[in-house]
């Protein structure tokens, strides 16, 4: 028997501006996600992916619709999800240890205890020797790994990841994708993942949503047939190559529609 929906986004709409200058960012977006699943969202630039994430993270309110996590409303209720952005957003004046433990210390946990709690994730991400360094002493990949550990320290089961590896070189990105996949499976996390990279979505996800723009809406949903963890060669399997072709065609059509 399948799990009940863990995350439910129901009829979410959002406009920016007013009157003649109003821009529809999202139009009645609805979907649900089971606990422990990895859902990637693909779509052209400006299709409202980040707006949708900000609504789910409780940072901005929707004009209409509801967002619930395990039955509790997330609307304007920040701090209930882990949020990771494309930029690592490490505080430059703090050490990596201080940055990693920030979500816990904000809750009043002592830094030493928070660091002890994070030790498994620190080890898994290979950051043991870098804890006393400042962010500007680390490479882009190391910084993003630190941001990943910090996101895990929120202790939230739902993670929102907005193109977290978008700014990295292909090799570092692949390492981090494998790391994320492994840690998510181990921890049983539920992840919403925004990406522009179809291969990345197919490698990591249980399901893929394709969004269209002007206004932002869901145009297709795919469930991936292959078991996880996957590797790059898996992407060459006929089922996934067909899915990739389908998604690319859809994205291409959306881009063309957007330009009209």
């Amino acid at each position: 028997m399948p799990d009940l929906p863990y995350l439910t986004v129901d009829g979410v709409s959002k406009h920016f501006g007013a009157g003649d200058h109003a821009v529809a960012a999202l139009d009645t977006v609805s979907f649900s996600l089971e606990r422990g699943k990895f859902l990637s969202i693909l779509g052209p630039s400006g299709c409202g992916k980040t707006t949708l994430f900000n609504i789910i993270a409780g940072l901005i309110p929707p004009d209409q619709g509801t967002v619930t996590l395990n039955g509790h409303s997330l609307v304007m209720n920040p701090g209930l999800t882990g949020y990771m952005l494309q930029r690592d957003l490490l505080l430059p004046w703090r050490t990596i240890a201080d940055n990693i433990t920030l979500p816990r210390t904000l809750k009043g946990v002592k830094p030493s205890a928070a660091l002890q709690d994070a030790s498994d994730d620190i080890r898994a991400c290979g950051l043991e020797g870098m804890l006393r360094r400042k962010p500007d002493e680390l490479s882009g990949g190391q910084r993003q790994r630190a941001a990943l550990v910090r996101t895990f320290q929120t202790g939230k089961e739902l993670l929102l990841m907005d193109e977290p590896f978008g700014a990295l070189d292909p090799i570092t990105r692949l390492h981090l994708q494998q790391l994320l996949m492994r840690l998510c499976l181990t921890k049983g996390l539920t992840v919403l993942f925004v990406t522009h990279d179809v291969d990345e979505a197919l490698l990591l996800s249980d399901e893929v949503l394709v969004m269209g723009s002007s206004p932002g809406r869901i145009v297709a949903r795919y469930t991936l047939p292959q078991e996880k963890p996957r590797s790059l060669p898996t992407l060459a399997l006929p089922a996934l190559t067909a899915m990739k072709a389908d998604i690319l065609t859809l994205l291409d059509e959306e881009d063309v529609d957007d330009e009209k």
């Binding site: 920040p78 701090g79 999800t81 949020y83 957003l89 904000l106």
Partner: peptide, 23 residues
């Protein structure tokens, strides 16, 4: 963006002030 991050982590306004704005 850092301000957004701290809010998403559930930081209060005073915590955001002390940990982000002052530094």
């Amino acid at each position: 963006a850092l301000q957004t991050l701290l809010v998403s982590l559930g930081a209060t306004r005073f915590q955001t002030f002390c940990r982000l704005v002052v530094p």
